[in-house]
Simulated scan of single mutants.
Amino acid sequence: MKDGPPARFTRPKHVELELVAVAYRDRSFPVHIHDDYVLGVIEGGAERLEVNGTSHLIDTGDLITIEPGLAHSNHTLGSEVLRYRVFYLPPELVASFSGCSNLRFAAPWRNDPVAGERLLELHRWFEAGTGDRLEQESAVAEIIEIAFDAGDRPDHEPQLPEAVDRARRYIDEHYPENFGLDELAAAAEISKFHLARSFSRSHGLSPLAYRTQRRIHAARRLILKGTPLADIAIGLGFADQSHLTRQFQSIVGISPARYREQ
C-alpha cells in the first residue's frame, strides 16, 4: 500500500463481509466500537490497543480480535508505518456458519504466527476478487475457525458420518454446479461450520477440495475423449479454460493439453 490510499476496502461478491487493508503513520483512533467481529493481522509496525483500561502492545504478526460492541482505542507506535489487514465479520454471518449466536474471543489479541500468515493469505485472496460461492464460503468457514481458535480447543464434536455421507453424495451428484455451503449444509442437515470440520476429518479433504477432485477426474475422462478444453471448463463449472488448466496442473502435475498428448 505504499502508493495507494491509507485504507483500502473490499467487499467480496458471494459472502457478506468487508475487508480493509491499511497503512497508517502517527495515527490515533479514539474510543469506539464496531458492530462486527474484528479479526485483524499486523503486517508491519506496531500499535497500542486500549481495552477496558488495559493497554496491549500489538506487534507485527499478532492477531487483533475485537468483539461487537467492545469499546477500545488504538494508536500507532514508533516511526514505522503500521500496516494491517482486517476482516469485519457480521454477527449474523458468524452465527450462520457456526450455529452459535454468542461466540466470544478469549482476549482482544493473540500471538499466533501460523494463523496470522494464513489469514493474510486469505485476505489477499479475497482482495484479488476471485473464487466462486463454495470457494468464498469455504474461506469464511476457515476464517471463523481461526478466529475462535477452534483448533486449539478440545474437540468434542461427534464424527457425524451420516451427515458427511449426505454431503459427499450431494457433491458427487452436483459437482459441475456452482453451489455453496448453504446447499451442502442443508443436504447434510448440519451447520456449515460443523460440515466443513467433519468432512475434512472424515475424508482428509475439505468439501471444496473434494469437489475440485471430482471435477478434475471428470475432466481427465473428457480430455481423453477429445472434448475441447473450453467446453470442458464450462461444463464442469470452472470459471474459464485457464482456471481449468491451473487446477488440472496443480493436481495431475501436467497441463490438460500435455495430458491429452500422452
Results as ranks from 00 to 15, higher is better:
residue 15 V to P: 08
residue 30 P to V: 04
residue 34 H to M: 04
residue 45 G to C: 02
residue 188 A to I: 02
residue 163 A to P: 03
residue 213 Q to D: 09
residue 26 D to S: 09
residue 250 S to D: 04
residue 238 F to C: 11
residue 124 R to Q: 15
residue 14 H to C: 09
residue 28 S to M: 11
residue 132 D to H: 07
residue 258 R to E: 13
residue 137 E to W: 07
residue 181 L to F: 03
residue 169 R to M: 13
residue 27 R to Y: 14
residue 162 E to S: 06
residue 95 A to R: 12
residue 65 T to Y: 01
residue 22 V to Y: 06
residue 52 N to Y: 08
residue 190 I to E: 05
residue 178 N to Q: 14
residue 1 M to N: 00
residue 56 H to K: 03
residue 229 L to T: 07
residue 212 T to I: 15
residue 12 P to F: 02
residue 249 Q to V: 10
residue 207 P to R: 09
residue 196 A to R: 00
residue 221 R to V: 14
residue 97 F to G: 07
residue 53 G to D: 11
residue 44 G to N: 13
residue 173 E to F: 06
residue 93 L to T: 01
residue 190 I to N: 08
residue 154 P to H: 02
residue 67 E to L: 14
residue 61 G to R: 08
residue 98 S to G: 00
residue 219 A to F: 08
residue 187 A to C: 05
residue 216 I to E: 01
residue 17 L to H: 04
residue 53 G to W: 11
residue 162 E to G: 10
residue 125 W to M: 02
residue 203 H to M: 04
residue 72 H to N: 12
residue 192 K to Y: 03
residue 104 R to F: 04
residue 140 V to F: 01
residue 225 K to E: 15
residue 33 I to S: 05
residue 157 E to Q: 10
residue 146 I to D: 01
residue 122 L to E: 02
residue 80 E to Y: 12
residue 127 E to K: 09
residue 102 N to G: 11
residue 99 G to C: 06
residue 49 L to R: 11
residue 84 Y to L: 13
residue 168 R to Y: 05
residue 89 L to M: 11
residue 64 I to S: 01
residue 33 I to V: 14
residue 108 P to W: 02
residue 148 F to Q: 00
residue 240 D to Y: 02
residue 43 E to N: 09
residue 162 E to V: 08
residue 251 I to H: 08
residue 76 T to F: 14
residue 224 L to W: 06
residue 115 A to W: 06
residue 3 D to E: 14
residue 63 L to G: 03
residue 157 E to N: 10
residue 69 G to L: 12
residue 78 G to V: 10
residue 94 V to S: 07
residue 129 G to K: 06
residue 6 P to E: 09
residue 223 I to A: 05
residue 55 S to V: 15
residue 162 E to A: 09
residue 186 A to M: 05
residue 36 D to Q: 12
residue 255 S to D: 15
residue 145 E to T: 14
residue 114 V to Q: 13
residue 161 P to N: 06
residue 230 A to G: 11
residue 133 R to N: 05
residue 151 G to V: 09
residue 186 A to W: 08
residue 125 W to A: 02
residue 183 E to A: 08
residue 153 R to C: 02
residue 7 A to P: 00
residue 238 F to Q: 10
residue 72 H to E: 10
residue 167 A to E: 05
residue 178 N to E: 15
residue 178 N to W: 08
residue 129 G to C: 03
residue 119 L to R: 01
residue 55 S to K: 12
residue 58 I to A: 04
residue 149 D to A: 01
residue 207 P to Q: 03
residue 54 T to G: 00
residue 10 T to F: 14
residue 28 S to P: 07
residue 220 R to F: 04
residue 97 F to N: 01
residue 222 L to N: 00
residue 195 L to S: 02
residue 221 R to M: 15
residue 147 A to R: 01
residue 5 P to Y: 07
residue 134 L to D: 05
residue 120 L to P: 01
residue 191 S to F: 09
residue 172 D to M: 05
residue 237 G to P: 14
residue 37 Y to E: 01
residue 231 D to C: 07
residue 6 P to H: 12
residue 31 V to K: 12
residue 237 G to L: 14
